[in-house]
Structure formats: C-alpha cells, structure tokens
Simulated scan of single mutants.
Amino acid sequence: MNKALLVIDYTNDFVANDGALTCGKAGQAIEQTLASLTEQFIKDGEFIVFSCDLHEENDEYHPESKLFPPHNIRDTEGRELFGSLQNIFKDHQDQNNILWMDKTRYSSFAGTNLAQLLAERGIQEIHLVGVCTDICVLHTAVDAYNKGFKTYIYENGVASFDEKGHKWALKHFKNTLGAEVIAFKS
C-alpha cells in the first residue's frame, strides 16, 4: 500500500437529480469511472478514503450556510454515497484499507486526521476524484500540494455544477499545483 484514492463528496446531495446542491448530469457522468477506479484500488489493496461533507441541520454558524442551501445534513439520504459507490462502500467497509471520513470544510485535510493516516501508512501519492472540481477537490489538492503529496487528478473522475470553474480548476491543478491530470482507462 503506497498510494491512496480519495473519493470526495460523491453523495446524493451533490450528484442525484434531486440533490440539494447537485452537479446533476455532470456528476452522474463520472459514476462509472469512480466505481471502476475504486474497484481497482480495492483489488490492489490500496488505501481508499470516502471523504464526505457533513453538516448539522440549522447550523447558522457554519460559513457555508451563507453561501449554499443546506446539504449533506447528518443522518439524511442526501449524505449517502451516490449510485453504485454506495454498494461498493457497503460491500467493503469492514476492510482496514477502506475508510469513511467526515469533513466539515472544503478540504479533506481541514480539521481531519487525513494527513496523519496517510503518513502512518507511508503514503505520499494521492489520487483525487469526486465533486466539485473547483471547490472541495480543488481545496483538497491545494492542501495536498502544501503537505508535499504527489497528486493525481482524474479528469474523467471529477465534475462540477460550474463548467467554467471545472475547466479552470483542471488547469490550476496542473499549472499551479504540479498535479498530474490524467484520464482513467478501465
């Protein structure tokens, strides 16, 4: 185990047609890539983190409450993984290389022990997929850069509700953060 896959915010609220803050079709279009990539990392025995946004109902003090409608509320269907990822997680959640991680900020590193978990496992290479390319994936990539991780972004494994932001972030990953933007081929 020398690399990790971070599946970021691939939940019903961010991807389903009726999600509270959905990417809709753009998010749904990456489902097969995420499922195949996750299965490949499972098969290879690599570390996988399902890093998912967590909010409390009626939390007026969280900064996102002023920016976005309520989403990913604790104990709601909106917070469950979207589509086939939910079954993949349920089928493998008891394995010691599969982890569900709550996060309350855009970055998967902010306020979590992710960096420690990666260090304990000797992981210095991370692979990012999920939504939104220009928000949570971006902020995770910035923190990964600042912490010295070799970072890969799957261009066919990220999506956003803002196409211009999505395209800008893909360039930023490569040109500013030195990440490798690649396509997953199953």
Rank of each mutant, 00 (worst) to 15 (best):
L67R: 12
K103Q: 02
D143K: 11
H172W: 14
G19V: 05
K66A: 05
M101I: 06
C52Q: 05
Y154N: 13
P69A: 15
T104C: 08
Q95G: 08
G19H: 01
D134V: 04
A119G: 09
A144L: 02
V129D: 03
K164D: 14
V15E: 04
E155H: 11
D53E: 03
L114C: 13
E77H: 09
T151L: 09
K43Q: 11
H62W: 09
F14M: 02
G24R: 06
T133F: 03
T104D: 11
F14T: 03
K171V: 11
A179L: 06
A144S: 04
D91P: 02
N12S: 02
I98D: 01
A183T: 14
I8C: 01
E39P: 10
E125P: 10
F41A: 03
A110M: 11
E31L: 05
L5S: 09
A119K: 02
A169F: 04
C132W: 04
K185S: 15
I126D: 04
T133N: 00
D44W: 08
D9F: 04
K103V: 01
E80H: 13
R79S: 15
F14W: 00
A141Q: 10
I135T: 09
V137C: 10
Q116V: 15
P69T: 10
G165R: 05
A29C: 01
T133D: 00
C52F: 01
G130Q: 00
V129R: 05
K147Q: 14
S108C: 10
L67Y: 13
N97V: 03
G130R: 05
E163F: 11
V137K: 07
H172Y: 15
M1F: 06
Y10R: 12
K25F: 10
K147L: 15
G27S: 06
D162P: 08
M101L: 13
L114R: 07
A179Q: 09
A20F: 04
A144D: 06
L170R: 06
T133G: 03
Q124D: 14
T11M: 01
A16G: 04
L114V: 04
E125Y: 08
N175S: 14
N97R: 07
Q86T: 08
N87A: 12
N156W: 05
L117F: 08
N113H: 03
H71F: 01
N2S: 13
F50E: 00
F41V: 05
E31V: 03
G165C: 02
S36A: 12
E39K: 14
S65R: 09
R105G: 03
N17S: 15
G148V: 10
F89A: 13
N97A: 15
A144H: 02
